[in-house]
């Protein structure tokens, strides 16, 4: 009943960064394993620098991982060539965060939306191309006439719809959505989230939904992976993360979400520390310095994901 459509195994990606004249090697992703079941939405939540975006970019081959494997339907993504690679490209598609930067200002919306098809020579005729563009624009709630418009004529929400249209023509198997609603106003954000939920059902999409916003993640995801400093620290069903967060970091994250409930107001100073520098990673658990449960073992040994409790929850913590 459940077939894994995308599998990421022990992915490691690092970058060279120059700071104050010195070169550092930053491990943006440090051994992440995920699997995406056909038809599900897996949310990846975490704060800036946790490596969630790099995971997404590795899957669409925008960055070259150091090690690890990415498989799409049992085919290795990283070594794909020729026809296989083309199939990957069309099946693994990305939606980007910034609706202003992700559309070329000099290309019409229609050209942008049809880009994957054009690159991979999917359309057999101009008429077919035009028809597919119109159909896709309609599917994302834009008038077909938008095809001849340019990005600067569109609002942020409309642009993001165009960005989504670009990712579903021709329809892929998996969408990697990297903070697709973070740059939008709340009222528009809800419209775009609804659209993504509708498309997922209509097209039977699987989705890797990357966001820093636990509210958005909780809304759209079936399962959630929480990342901290390049590693997954907790993964389980969305409800279980929201209601029964286990890892101390997940709990801190949940507690910090500003809820629209004035009965839980901030009374005074709250000091919960900051993540360690990426240039100077601690030896053991990266959360140790901020963790209320910290023990000696945490500073020496990196905790591995292990099952805890019910609902397929896995947590990387020594002290649970």
């Amino acid at each position: 009943m459940t077939t894994t459509i995308l599998r990421v195994s022990d992915l490691k990606t690092s970058f060279n960064v120059k700071r104050s004249g010195r070169k550092y090697r930053v491990n943006a992703v440090d051994g992440v394993s995920l699997s995406l079941v056909a038809g599900e939405v897996l949310g990846i939540v975490g704060e800036s620098g946790c490596g969630k975006t790099t995971v997404g970019r590795s899957i669409v081959r925008l960055v070259q991982p150091d090690s690890g494997a990415i498989e799409f339907k049992d085919t290795d993504v990283l070594s794909a060539r020729g026809q296989t690679l083309r199939e990957m490209r069309l099946n693994l598609r990305m939606v980007f965060q910034d609706p202003y930067a992700s559309l070329n200002p000099r290309r019409s919306i229609g050209d942008s939306v049809a880009e994957a098809g054009d690159i991979n020579k999917v359309f057999t005729s101009r008429a077919e191309r035009a028809a597919r563009i119109a159909e896709t624009l309609t599917a994302v709630g834009l008038e077909p006439s938008f095809a001849t418009r340019y990005p600067h004529e569109l609002s942020g929400g409309q642009r993001q719809r165009a960005g989504i249209a670009r990712a579903i023509l021709p329809a892929p198997a998996v969408i990697i959505a990297d903070e697709p609603v973070s740059a939008l106003d709340v009222s528009v954000q809800a419209q775009v989230l609804n659209l993504m939920m509708d498309l997922r059902e209509q097209l039977g999409l699987s989705m890797l939904f990357i966001s820093h916003d636990i509210g958005v993640i909780g809304q759209i995801s079936d399962r959630v992976a929480v990342m901290y400093m390049g590693r997954v620290v907790e993964m389980s069903g969305a409800r279980s993360i929201l209601d029964r967060a286990a890892h101390p970091y997940t709990r801190a994250l949940m507690a910090a979400v500003p809820r629209p409930d004035p009965s839980q107001r901030i009374a005074g100073a709250i000091e919960t520390g900051e993540p360690p520098s990426q240039f100077n990673r601690p030896a053991g658990c990266a959360y140790a310095a901020r963790c209320p449960l910290v023990s000696e073992r945490c500073r020496a040994e990196v905790p591995q994901l292990r099952p805890i409790g019910a609902d397929d929850k896995v947590v990387a913590c020594h002290n649970l």
Partner: peptide
């Protein structure tokens, strides 16, 4: 329209 009020 806040997602955090409509979880699930």
């Amino acid at each position: 329209c806040m997602p955090v009020r409509n979880l699930g």
